[in-house]
Every structure is written in C-alpha cells, then in structure tokens.
C-alpha cells in the first residue's frame, strides 16, 4: 500500500510539473497549425481524423477505432486512445484539444482551467456539419482541406422522393430519436415520414412497444439488434410483438449500422445513401432488409 501511495503521489507531482513547468498557452502555434491534436470524444474524433494529418493526432477517444461506432475506425487504427480524463489528456501534452458530443463537462472545465487550447464543438444537426468542418479545419490549420470536405458533404446531402411511408428508428429500451436528431433527418431525407416527428415527440423520447403497435410505422429501422453485447434494453428489439407486426401487417424491418448517425459526422451522408438504397430495394419486395 505504501509504495502504491508513493508512486501515485510521484505521478501526480510529475503531472503537476508538466502542467506548471511549461506554459502551454504561450507557445506560439506554428504556421502549419497545432502539432499535437487530441480529441476528447467519439464525435470530435471524426472531425479531427477527417482534417488533421495523421502524425499530428496524439490522442483519440476509446471508441475511435470501433468499426461499429465510428465511420473513421480505419483511419484511427494504430493511434493512441485515452479515456477522456483530464489527467490522461494532459499526459498527451496537447497543443489543441477538440471536444464535443459525449464529453464530461468536468473534464472540459478542468482542461480550460489548466489553460489547454480547447475547441468545443456544439451539439449539431446535419446542417451544422459544414460549419463544424470549417471550425475544426481552421483550428488545425487546414482550411483548404476543410473547404473541400464541406463542399463534398453539402453535395452529398441529398433528399429522396417522398415514399408516402412512415418510418421509425427503434432503439434499445424503446428510444425513438426525434426531431433535431441526425437519425431523424436521415430518415426524412431517405424519403420517409418520421413517426417521431408526426407524434410530436421530443428529440429523445421513449416509446413503449404498446404505443408502437398503435402508431405502427410502415418501416421499422433498427441499428442495435446485433451489437457489442446483450443488454436488457436490447431485449425490446426481440419482443414477439414486433415480429407479429411484420408478419401480420407487413411492417418492414430494416437494419442499419449505427456508426453514420450516432454523431453529426463528415460521413453522416453515407447513412442517407445507405437507407435510401435499402428502401429502394424494399419498394419492390417488402419485408426484411439486412
């Protein structure tokens, strides 16, 4: 016990020295932009990976390399990941921290107090992505890359014809992403009428199986039926009532990956084309689309 205490005190002292010994703010940013960029969250990871040269990325969130949760997983392979505590972030000696999305507020406050240059991305919808790209591009010193990416994003932000069908994304525990969420906008852009919007629900509302049966959508979209592991909330996606709704009413059951719409991301437009494609195939046959 004694040595453990001693080692952690020592580690604390070292961190303190690292923090106070070198004034981070005073260091002039080189003309090429920050050299040690650290991202704090899964959503921020994606902008950082899209706009920063790989050798300057010094830290990403734990989930950054997860194929399931990030469309930039391939780019994140081999880069350092951290658990988003202020201590771990400071140990990476960043000259720019990008936060946003799922970030602990205390961590951001702590980093701000410690004087780390911080770019905090606000919660975003799809329409905000070009602006976020521009902000991150400016912060990492890559405005041309940012302009190209934003233009590509905007041109991929398509809208399919109205299919005259109601769609709902159903998540574990009965979560139904509603207005102002990326998921809802993708559903609408793929040509569906969003059940959450037509029910007048909040951004993240809970809908019981019973309510879903009564307001039965034509297309049920699921993105968490086969994920990292079983959970109580996920059992709802296997509720016999859902199967019966498909069998009896011909409710279509469409599986989507979760990675493109978990964050408003530079690659979120892939969700629109993917869902549009699945729904186009559905129009012919009806039923289940993997």
């Amino acid at each position: 016990m004694k040595t453990g205490w001693f080692v952690s005190s020592l580690a604390f002292a070292v961190v303190l020295f690292a923090l106070t010994g070198r004034p981070l703010m005073a260091e002039p940013l080189s003309s090429a932009g920050p050299q040690r960029v650290v991202s704090l969250s899964l959503c921020a990871d994606q902008f950082v990976l899209a706009l920063t040269p790989r050798e300057r990325i010094k830290g990403l969130s734990v989930l950054a390399n997860s194929e399931r949760y990030s469309p930039f997983a391939a780019e994140a392979q081999g880069l350092v990941r951290h658990r988003a505590t202020a201590e771990e972030v400071m140990a990476l000696d960043p000259d720019l921290v990008v936060a946003g999305g799922y970030t602990r507020r205390q961590t951001v406050d702590m980093l701000t107090r410690l004087g780390v240059p911080l770019l905090s991305l606000p919660p975003a919808e799809l329409g905000d992505v070009p602006d976020l790209i521009a902000q991150v591009a400016a912060a990492v010193g890559n405005p041309e890359g940012g302009a190209r990416l934003a233009a590509a994003f905007t041109s991929a932000l398509t809208r399919a014809r109205d299919r005259g069908m109601v769609g709902a994304l159903y998540r574990p525990g009965g979560d139904l992403p509603g207005p102002k969420t990326v998921e809802n906008e993708v559903i609408e852009r793929a040509g569906l009428t969003s059940l959450a919007a037509s029910l007048g629900l909040q951004a993240y509302a809970r809908v019981t199986i019973e309510e879903l049966v009564v307001h039965r959508p034509d297309v049920l979209i699921v993105d968490s039926r086969h994920d990292a592991g079983p959970s109580l909330g996920r059992q709802i996606l296997f509720h016999p009532a859902l199967r019966q709704m498909s069998a009896v009413h011909g409710m279509a059951d469409v599986e989507m990956p979760i990675r493109y719409w978990l964050c408003a991301s530079p690659r979120s437009t892939a969700a629109i084309s993917l869902l549009t494609d699945k729904l186009d195939r559905l129009d012919g046959q009806g039923g289940r689309v993997q």
Binding site: L63, P172, A228, G229, P230, S231, G233
Partner: peptide, 8 residues
C-alpha cells in the same frame, strides 16, 4: 461488453 449496460 455492451457499452450501454451501465445505464440500465
């Protein structure tokens, strides 16, 4: 293994 387990 499920990242949302703790929320339940």
């Amino acid at each position: 293994p499920n990242p949302h387990a703790a929320l339940e």
